[in-house]
Design a protein around this nucleic acid. Structure first.
Length: 1058
RNA sequence: GGGCCCGUAGCUCAGCCGGUCAGAGCGCUACUCUGAUAAAGUAGAGGUCGGAUGUUCGAGUCAUCCCGGGCCCA
C-alpha cells in the first residue's frame, strides 16, 4: 500500500468490491508495516488499565466458526478499550493438558487402551501430546490472525507451561494446609476404555446419550415368607452380581400379586409392568417391608461371601414410582447413590470391576469378562435359578465418556478431592459481586454452586498436571509440594533425573521425597489433575502471581472475561471462582460475558458427520471475515446463532454493500470535484439535512459507547445499522443533487464536509467490529492529506460524541419528513403517477400540533423528494380526511324499526369526523336519544376528486393528480433527461463529459424541450441542444416517451478549461 | 422434584425504564426508480404478541398460575 505524501485525490474506489481480496491485502499490510505492533503498544504508558484474561482455547484441533464467534467478541471489546486508551496485555491462551489431547494422540497412533500407551512409553506419549498442542496452537494462531484478531501472539500462554503447573501446586498445597484436600472412596462413573473416573463436572452435559438397554425384571425370593418374592428391575444387569440390598419407599403403597405359582411384591403404581393378568392379594406401606430378608441373585459367588446373609429390604426416600417395579436393587459397588445408601446402612461393598471394566476374581464364570458382554450369561444363570421374570428394551439417557463415547460403568475407587464446604460460601459471594452479562448467568452459577459436590481433581491418566501429592505407604502421611524449589529441597532421590524436564509424568515421578512424619522415601501418587485446575489458575499464573506480585496486583482481578456459557458455569467459571476464593477470597473478574451456541442456518446443530459444519477457512474465503464478524456482533449473545452462507449474504447485502456504496459514491464525486479534506478548513454552512445527519452521527456515537461499555455489542451493531440506513437512504439520497450540480458553492462544500465526517467517524466506530472495511475506508479518506491521521484506523481514538450537535427536535422533524415522503410516494403509487412527473401540490395532515412548526424546515426536502410544486398543511381542514358516515341499516332496521329513519337523519347532521373516530376506536356512538354500537355505523374515508391519498398512524399525505399542460411538459422534459442520461452511460461517457445533444420528436416533445432547455442542458451537461440530430453522433437512441416517439443523438464536446 | 431461558406475521428474530411498538429482515407477487446500479423504493401478510387471572387510567412490556419448548441440576 503506497503512502500518499502529497495526495491530491482519493484512491478510486471499485464499486464492485472483492471484500475477501481486500481483507487479505490489508492483513499482510498490517503485519508488514508494524500496525499490529503499534496497536499492541498504543497505550503502553496509559494510567488506565483494562485487564482481560483469555479463557484458553483447547489447542487440539483447528478452530471452528463457533470459536471465531467468541474470538470476535474478545477482539471487539479489546479493540474498543484500546481505542479508548486503556493499557492492555493482549495475551492469548492455549489449553493443552488433559484427556482430550490424549484421546486424539491415541487415535493417531491407533491405541486402544492404557496398556498400549504404557508399551509405547509414557515419556514418548507425553512428548507427542505436547507436540500436538504446539502444532494446533500454531494453526489456531494463523486462523485467528485471519479473523483480524489482534493479539500479542508471540506471548500466548500455555496451560502446560511449567509456571502454570507450579502455580497450581501452590494452590493445592494451600488447600492441603487448610485441610480441604482429601482422598476419598466413592463409586464413580468410570470410562473402561480410558481407564479413568469422570468427575461430576464432566458428566453433566455432553456426558449423556439416549441409549437402549435391557430392562431386566427378576425375583428375589423372600426367606421368611415362603412362596413370596420381591420383583426388582435394573438396566445394568452386570451389577446384579454385586447386589447387597433392596430398597423401597417408606410411604409408597406396595402390593402382593399372584403370579403363576408364587406371589410377587411390587409398587402398587407399577402393576402395569407385570405380564398378563394379576390378582392383588395384599397391600402394604413400604415401611412394613423393611427388614425382610431375601435370597440374592448370585449368592453362590465367592464375592458374595460378606453379603449373602445380609440381604434385606431397606427404606429409601429416593425410590421412584415412575419406573421399574418400585423396588430398587442396591449394589453399593455399582452406583454412587447405592454407595451412599450402603454407607449409611453399613452395608458391605462388592466392587465387581477392574480398571478396564472387567470382572475381578471371585465372580465365577464372569471373572475376566467385560461388564458389557455378560448380559446373556447373567440371564441364563437367572433363568436356571428360576428368578428371571422378563427382559424388555428400555430407552433412557445414560452417561457416556464425553471424549470417547464409551458407556460408563461405576467403580469404587480412591480419588482425590477438594472439599467445597468452606469454599462454597466465598464462591457464592464472589459470584454475586461479579457483573454477569447476560444477567441470568449469575443465577445459573449460583444454582451450580448450591448443588455442587466436592471437586474431584485426580485422574488416573498420563498427560496432565502431575498432582504434587506424596502419600507415605508406611505411615499414610500426606505431603503436598508447593513449588519446584520445595521439591528440590525435599527430594531424596531422582532429582538429577528430573531436572531439566517439565513437571510432568514420567520425569517428575522419578523424584522421591522423605515423609515428613516417618522419614520413609515416598513417591508421588500416579494421578494427574483435572484440566479445569489448569484453566482456573490462569488469573494467577499468567500475571506473575508467584514471581512478580506487584505486576500481578495491577492486573488482578480481571476486568472482563468471556466464554460461551454452556458448560462454563461448572467448568471454567467455576474453577476460576474456586481458585480465587481459595487463594485470595476475591472474585477473579469484575465482569463475565457469555454467549449461546452456534447452529447452522436452519437452526440445526452443526455436526461434521451431518455435513452441515462449516470450516473456518471456507467461511473466511467465501464470505469474508468482516461479514462473519458483523454477523456475530449483531447477534443477541444469549440466543443461539444460526450461522451460514445465507445469513452471511444478508449481512453483506444489508450492511457492507450499502456502506461501500456510500463510500464509493463519496470518493467518486469528491475526486470529480477536486474536494479534499483540506477544504474542511474554514466555516461551513450546513443545511438542515447536514445538521440532521451530524446529530444522528453523534447520537450513534453516544449510544455505541454506552452499549459497548455495558457489553451489548448487538445493540451497538443494530444502532450502527440504523444509522447507515439513514445515511444511505435519506442523507445521501436527499443530497445527491448537491454533489453533482455544477457550481462549487458553500452548500456543496457543506455536503462534502458532512459526508466526509460521517464516513471517517463511522469507520472508527465500526473498526472494532469490521476491522478490514473500516481500515480500507479510513486509510483512503484520511491518510496522506496532512490532516491528523495515525496511519491506521486501529491506532485512532474512539470518537468522542459532541452532544451539542445532537438535536432531538431535528431528529423528529426529519422523521416527519421521511414519513410524509413515504406516504407521498405511496399516494403517487396508488394513482400510478411516477415521481418523475411533477405534480402541483402535496397536502399533508399531521398528528400533532407542534409538527406544524416543523413543516417549513422540511418543505424543501418534500418538494424535491416528491417532485411537487408546493406543500400544503391540510391538518384540521378535513380536506383529506373527509368521512362519510352511514347507518348500518341491516343491523339498525331489525333493532330500531321505524326509528332507524330518525337515526339516519341524526347521523347526517352529526359531526362525521367525531363519529368516525368513535367508531374506529370501537366506542359507542351517542346521538340525541340514542346510543349506537360501533358496529351499527358504517364509516368510510372519502378522497376528494383529483387527489390520491395515503394515510397511516394519524398522518395523511395527498398529491393533487391533476396534470396541467406545463406539468405535462416538464414531465416530458424530465423523461427525456432520463433517456439522455442512460444513453450517456451506455455510450461510455464519463460523468463529467460535456455533450452536444439532439432531440427529435413530435411537437409536444420539442416544445417541452425548448421550454425547459436550460434545465435539460444543465442536467445532461449539454453545451449544445437542438431539435436536429447531432451530425457526428457517438450515441443514438429512439424510444417511446408517453406515447411520443423520440430520437436522441449525442456526441462528446470538448470544453475550455474553466 | 428444583433452577434458568424461551414461546411476537410463513421463516429468523427486534421490541430498553409499562403509554402510536404491534415492528424488521427474509421469502413471494406486482409496480416504481435508477450516472450509489452484484443497489434502492412502494404496495400486498391483517399476527387473540402461547393461555388465563391480576396490578394499572393504560400491559408483548409488571405479578401469579397454567400450557408448550430448550438447557442445567437432582
Amino acid at each position: 500500500m503506497k503512502e500518499h505524501s502529497d495526495k491530491r485525490s482519493f484512491d478510486p474506489v471499485e464499486p464492485r468490491v472483492d471484500f475477501v481480496a481486500m481483507e487479505e491485502r490489508l492483513l499482510s499490510w498490517w503485519y508488514k508495516s508494524g500496525i499490529v505492533e503499534q496497536y499492541l503498544r498504543r497505550n503502553e504508558s496509559s494510567e488506565k488499565r483494562f485487564s482481560f484474561i483469555d479463557g484458553p482455547i483447547t489447542a487440539n484441533n483447528p478452530m471452528g466458526v463457533h470459536h471465531a464467534w467468541g474470538r470476535t467478541y474478545k477482539d471487539l471489546f479489546l479493540r474498543f478499550r484500546n481505542m479508548q486508551g486503556y493499557r492492555q496485555r493482549f495475551q492469548n491462551g492455549f489449553d493443552g493438558q488433559g484427556l482430550w489431547v490424549e484421546v486424539e494422540v491415541e487415535k493417531e497412533k491407533g491405541f486402544n487402551s492404557k496398556r498400549d500407551i504404557e508399551d509405547y512409553g509414557v515419556g514418548r506419549f507425553v512428548e507427542d501430546c505436547k507436540a500436538r498442542v504446539r502444532h494446533f496452537a500454531a494453526v489456531q494462531t494463523e486462523q485467528s490472525k485471519r479473523l483480524g484478531y489482534f493479539m500479542d501472539w508471540e506471548n500466548s500462554y500455555h496451560t502446560m507451561s511449567d509456571e502454570n503447573n507450579y502455580t497450581i501446586w501452590r494452590f493445592l498445597k494451600l488447600c492441603h494446609e487448610r485441610g480441604w484436600l482429601y482422598e476419598g472412596t466413592d463409586s464413580m462413573p468410570w470410562c473402561p476404555r480410558c481407564g479413568t473416573g469422570l468427575s461430576q463436572h464432566e458428566i453433566v452435559t455432553e456426558g449423556y446419550r439416549e441409549i437402549t438397554h435391557d430392562g431386566v425384571y427378576l425375583k428375589l425370593p423372600l426367606l421368611d415368607r415362603p412362596g413370596e418374592a420381591l420383583l426388582i428391575w435394573t438396566t445394568t444387569p452386570w451389577t446384579l452380581a454385586a447386589n447387597v440390598a433392596a430398597a423401597v419407599h417408606p410411604d409408597h403403597e406396595y402390593v402382593k400379586v399372584r403370579d403363576a405359582n408364587e406371589a410377587l411384591w411390587l409398587g402398587s403404581g407399577r402393576i402395569d409392568a407385570l405380564e398378563g393378568g394379576h390378582e392383588v392379594l395384599e397391600r402394604a406401606r413400604g415401611s412394613t417391608l423393611a427388614g425382610w430378608r431375601y435370597r440374592g441373585p448370585f449368592d453362590e459367588l465367592p464375592a458374595q461371601s460378606d453379603a449373602r446373609d445380609r440381604h434385606r429390604v431397606l427404606l429409601w426416600n429416593e425410590v421412584s414410582e415412575e419406573e421399574g417395579t418400585g423396588i430398587v436393587h442396591i449394589a453399593p459397588g455399582g452406583g454412587s447413590e447405592d454407595f451412599a445408601l450402603g454407607k449409611e446402612h453399613g452395608l458391605p461393598v462388592i466392587a465387581p470391576l477392574d480398571e478396564s471394566g472387567r470382572y475381578l476374581e471371585g465372580f465365577g464364570r464372569f471373572s475376566g469378562l467385560s461388564a458389557s458382554e455378560v448380559n446373556s450369561d447373567i440371564y441364563e444363570s437367572l433363568r436356571s435359578k428360576g428368578v428371571l421374570y422378563k427382559v424388555e428394551e428400555y430407552r433412557h439417557r445414560y452417561p457416556v465418556c464425553w471424549r470417547c463415547n464409551t458407556e460408563l460403568v461405576f467403580r469404587v475407587v480412591d480419588e482425590w478431592f477438594i472439599s467445597m464446604d468452606q469454599l462454597r460460601e466465598p464462591m457464592m459471594e464472589a459470584t454475586n459481586r461479579i457483573r454477569w452479562e447476560p444477567p441470568f448467568g449469575r443465577e445459573r452459577e449460583l444454582d451450580w454452586l448450591r448443588n455442587m459436590h466436592d471437586w474431584m481433581i485426580s485422574k488416573k491418566r498420563y498427560w496432565g498436571l502431575a498432582l504434587p501429592i506424596y502419600k507415605c505407604s508406611n505411615c499414610r502421611k500426606v505431603d503436598v509440594i508447593g513449588s519446584e524449589t520445595e521439591l528440590e529441597e525435599r527430594a531424596v532421590e531422582g532429582w538429577d533425573e528430573f531436572q531439566g524436564h517439565s513437571p510432568h509424568r514420567p520425569w517428575l515421578d522419578a523424584v522421591k521425597i522423605a515423609c515428613s512424619e516417618c522419614g520413609a522415601s515416598v513417591s508421588r501418587i500416579p494421578d494427574v489433575g483435572n484440566p479445569w485446575l489448569d484453566a482456573g489458575i490462569v488469573t494467577f499464573s499468567t500475571l506473575g502471581y508467584r514471581n512478580d506480585p506487584a505486576y500481578w496486583s495491577q492486573w488482578y482481578p480481571a476486568d472482563w472475561i468471556s466464554e460461551s456459557f454452556p458448560g462454563q458455569f461448572r467448568n471454567w467459571f467455576y474453577s476460576l471462582l474456586a481458585m480465587s476464593a481459595a487463594l485470595k477470597n476475591q472474585e477473579p473478574t469484575r465482569a463475565i460475558f457469555s454467549y449461546a451456541l452456534m447452529r447452522d442456518q436452519d437452526g440445526e446443530e452443526m455436526h461434521k458427520s451431518k455435513g452441515n459444519a462449516i470450516w473456518f477457512e471456507d467461511a473466511a474465503e467465501k464470505m469474508g471475515v468482516d461479514v462473519m464478524r458483523w454477523l456475530y456482533s449483531r447477534q443477541n449473545p444469549s440466543s443461539n446463532l444460526n450461522f451460514g452462507y445465507g445469513p452471511g449474504d444478508e449481512v453483506r447485502r444489508r450492511f457492507l454493500i450499502p456502506l461501500w456504496n456510500v463510500y464509493s459514491f463519496f470518493v467518486t464525486y469528491a475526486n470529480l470535484d477536486g474536494w479534499t479534506p483540506l477544504q474542511e478548513e474554514g466555516k461551513v454552512n450546513r443545511s438542515e439535512l447536514d445538521r440532521w445527519i451530524l446529530s444522528e452521527l453523534n447520537r450513534l456515537n453516544l449510544r455505541m459507547t454506552d452499549y459497548l461499555e455495558n457489553w451489548r455489542p448487538d445493540y451497538a451493531a443494530h444502532a450502527a445499522e440504523e444509522f447507515l440506513d439513514g445515511l444511505s437512504n435519506w442523507y445521501v439520497r436527499r443530497s445527491r443533487r448537491r454533489f453533482w450540480k455544477g457550481e462549487d458553492d458553500d452548500d456543496k462544500r457543506a455536503a462534502y464536509s458532512t459526508l466526509y465526517t460521517c464516513l471517517t467517524t463511522f469507520s472508527r466506530l465500526i473498526a472494532p467490529f469490521t476491522p478490514f472495511v473500516a481500515e480500507e475506508m479510513h486509510r483512503n479518506l484520511t491518510a496522506g492529506w496532512g490532516v491528523e491521521s495515525r496511519g491506521s484506523v486501529h491506532l485512532e481514538d474512539w470518537p468522542t460524541p459532541n452532544q451539542s450537535l445532537i438535536d432531538e427536535q431535528l431528529s423528529q422533524r426529519t422523521r416527519l419528513a421521511m414519513r410524509l415522503a413515504s406516504l407521498g410516494r405511496s399516494a403517487r403509487a396508488s394513482a400510478r403517477i411516477r415521481v418523475r412527473q411533477p405534480l402541483s401540490e402535496l397536502s399533508v395532515e399531521l398528528r400533532e400540533e407542534r409538527e406544524k412548526e416543523y413543516l417549513p424546515s422540511i418543505e424543501t426536502q418534500l418538494l424535491e423528494e416528491l417532485n411537487v410544486k408546493r406543500v400544503v398543511d391540510a391538518t384540521g381542514t378535513g380536506r383529506l380526511s373527509a368521512w362519510s358516515v352511514r347507518p348500518n341499516l341491516p343491523v339498525l332496521g331489525p333493532k330500531y324499526g321505524r326509528q332507524a329513519t330518525e337515526i339516519r337523519a341524526l347521523l347526517e347532521e352529526a359531526d362525521a369526523s367525531r363519529i368516525a373516530s368513535l367508531v374506529e376506536s370501537g366506542e359507542p356512538v351517542s346521538l340525541p336519544g340514542f346510543v349506537l354500537d360501533p358496529g351499527e355505523v358504517l364509516v368510510e374515508r372519502t378522497v376528494p376528486d383529483g387527489y390520491a391519498v395515503a394515510a397511516d398512524a394519524g398522518y395523511a399525505a395527498a398529491v393533487n393528480t391533476v396534470l396541467t399542460d406545463p406539468l405535462r411538459a416538464e414531465g416530458l422534459a424530465r423523461e427525456v433527461v432520463r433517456l439522455v442520461q442512460n444513453l450517456r452511460k451506455s455510450t461510455g461517457l464519463e460523468i463529467s463529459d460535456r455533450i452536444a445533444l439532439g432531440v427529435k420528436g413530435p411537437q409536444a416533445v420539442e416544445s417541452a424541450i425548448s421550454d425547459f432547455a436550460e434545465y435539460v442542458k444543465q442536467e445532461t451537461l449539454a453545451v449544445e441542444l437542438s431539435c436536429d440530430a447531432v451530425t457526428d453522433a457517438q450515441g443514438s437512441q429512439t424510444r417511446d416517451v408517453d406515447g411520443h416517439k423520440v430520437s436522441i443523438t449525442l456526441a462528446r464536446r470538448a470544453v475550455s478549461q474553466e
